[in-house]
Design a protein around this nucleic acid. Structure first.
Lengths: 153, 153
DNA sequence: ATTACTGCAAAGGCTTTGCATTGTA
DNA sequence: TACAATGCAAAGCCTTTGCAGTAAT
């Protein structure tokens, strides 16, 4: 999907930022992913294709992309402190992290949006961004535990 | 509410941990709060009553309390990396942080619980803990912006 | 030719840890 | 008396930043 990359690069240019090989590479790395990655993962993928790229550049580029709205960044369990990034195309995603196998179960935004709407109506607030992180058991582990007679709460 | 503190100390004892002046002080500090505080805030409050307590002890105590389920710890916007703690009595709380005035609007768990239930039903997962953080505008700022003709999205 | 961007290495924040000492049980 | 807990200072981890050199427009 080079389309998204082109759009991203156009935006960079419009805003007076330069299109560098490093930024292009990072956009390609991000575009090849379907879910969120943390900075180290992104750095590793980029470094595999250009071993001169520095971690500082990755941080700077991701922060820039986030400011421009090019990436969706959020925090996931269990390592809540580390931000994860994903190219901002398509609907928002949230995650449930399985404590048994580590799988991240993707959760579309529609459920959360309903909650947000109710929040807005009942509390009189307005919401610009929402982050929901869940810890629990993925469907497979939930099933496995049920059969083992140790159903999770 | 010394009741909660007594229960907490009993649990410590049951599990083979010792009741030290520092831990008691921290429990009292936490019990006096109605919403989540970060480590520095807790340290400051404790230090005001015992200026020999160290930050390391605060970290160790809070981590222990969290393991024992004595405190509810979560992450809030905008400083997502910093954990905040609160004595675990009463229902879970989530927060919306106002980007205009910094207020934290408290959100009871019931709305989120409904979402969690639907998640469980639709996805076949099980959920052990949930964290929802919102960024937006508090009711007062929402109203102020509406009147200024700049309604937030 | 400008001006932004990069890589490097150092510095910053927050949190954890090693160790000798203190104190609880 | 044992062994856990504390305070201190150092180390760890992730992220940001200053700077001199490099490259995009």
């Amino acid at each position: 999907m080079p389309h998204i990359i082109d759009e991203a690069e156009s935006l960079l240019q419009e805003r007076g930022f330069k299109i560098t090989p490093q930024r292009s590479l990072l956009l390609r790395v991000l575009a090849a992913q379907s879910s969120h990655l943390d900075v180290d993962e992104i750095y590793a993928l980029a470094h595999a294709q250009d071993d001169s790229i520095s971690l500082a550049t990755v941080y700077r580029a991701l922060n820039l992309f986030a400011e421009l709205g090019l990436v969706d960044h959020r925090y996931v369990e269990p390592d809540h402190r580390r931000e994860v990034f994903r190219l901002a195309d398509g609907p928002e995603q949230h995650y449930l992290t399985c404590v048994r196998c580590g799988t991240r179960v993707l959760i579309r935004a529609d459920l959360l949006n309903r909650m947000v709407n109710e929040l807005v109506r009942r509390k009189g607030v307005s919401v610009t961004s929402a982050c929901a992180c869940f810890t629990g058991y993925c469907p497979a582990c939930t099933e496995a535990l049920r059969q083992a007679g140790t159903p999770p709460e």
